[in-house]
Design a protein around this nucleic acid. Structure first.
Lengths: 198, 198
DNA sequence: AGCCTAAACGGACCGTGGTCCACTTTCATT
DNA sequence: AATGAAAGTGGACCACGGTCCGTTTAGGCT
């Protein structure tokens, strides 16, 4: 008899049961550590120990610390992706592109305020940062909205800049170090979007 | 007799002769390593060894790897700073703010193409990045130009975004990974500046 | 049930950034 | 020239990210 063999299109074809179990254990352990002692306390060894597995397993499952952080964000980010791709306006399709872009930025800012530390840790990686699917999806989304709004410039570059304004490290610095209010940053986003879209 | 005792206003009050000598030796060693094997090869121990000093000395002089990288950039960056603060137009004072800002971005992009790898390494630091004098000077300069141009929005935020467009990591990704031409990125800068200043 | 192979495992091992502290050197003062 | 304290030094030491590889295990096949 064949195990499952069949799998939904989007999913990876196989993950052995022990592997799946350990992935779950590790994510739970990491989540707990973040909640209890902050993201800095999430060392690969600590996570491994807490999950009761070897350190090698953590790397096998997530590739790197950055990978682990990203996995932690996965659920949250997927939620936002769903919302702006399929959800109701103003975030989702149906609303004016400008409104959608403004809503997108505000939603992202809200995300930063909640999971900012983890987000920053995940963005830390030097080169992989811009290649990450979630990052590319976001810039692609922004590009699409710009095009829909009839912006005539170099849309890809403008999308980079716009998304850069939502960078976790930058926003955290603005809010925490330079003590700008969240409203101020959000209003700045609105203004920026309108300026770029003119 | 008193050693020097007196020192120009901007300078640190004292650095013992051996300390100064070692700083010079270390910078030379680091520079050589960058030239010969790229920035990744610049480990603190390698630099120390090449300079013939202990590892602790490297940290005492530069605080961290990031600090060492910044020190390497110091001369180059100071040059640009001089140019846009006191040099001839369009970079320096005298020209139209828009022209100056465009010139500033282009100069910075040129810098990234030359010392980009080192710049990226220096920007890597998580929090200190935005507090670094050179960074703050740049955003302050941009803010000033925006104000001079009569931009009415939140100038500080706009400056953050504009400078973010010149981020070494981003630009290197655009040029090297996504194979955008330098001209394209530079033209994008011009367009961005005009959009934001309207 | 027994077999076989690909996958998963775990922990020893390595390189690097960063800290620490007992020892050395500089240099203004006398 | 002698002196004393502040500054500098160096390398042992630590923590962490990441790799490696010999061992174990899941699970499809016969």
């Amino acid at each position: 008899m064949l195990g499952d063999g069949l799998h939904l299109v989007g999913e990876d074809p196989a993950e052995r049961s022990d592997a799946a179990r350990n992935r779950r254990l590790l994510l739970e352990a990491a989540e707990t550590l973040v909640a209890e002692h902050g993201p800095d306390s999430v060392t690969m060894e600590a996570v491994a120990k807490k999950a009761g597995v070897g350190k090698g397993t953590v790397f096998r499952r997530f590739g790197s610390r950055t990978g682990l952080m990203r996995a932690l964000l996965d659920h949250t980010e997927k939620q936002l992706q769903q919302d702006f791709m399929f959800g109701p306006p103003p975030l989702g399709p149906g609303a004016d592109p400008i409104e959608r872009l403004i809503a997108f930025g505000r939603a992202r800012l809200a995300l930063v305020l909640v999971v900012g530390e983890v987000l920053r840790a995940a963005e830390a990686s030097p080169d992989l940062r811009y290649e990450h699917p979630a990052h590319m999806l976001c810039t692609a989304h922004i590009s699409m909205l710009l095009r829909q709004a009839g912006v005539d410039g170099d849309v890809a570059l403008l999308a980079d800049v716009l998304f850069g304004a939502l960078d976790a490290g930058l926003v955290l610095n603005q809010v925490q170090v330079r003590e700008m209010s969240i409203e101020r940053v959000a209003d700045g986003w609105d203004d920026l979007v309108r300026r770029i879209m003119r």
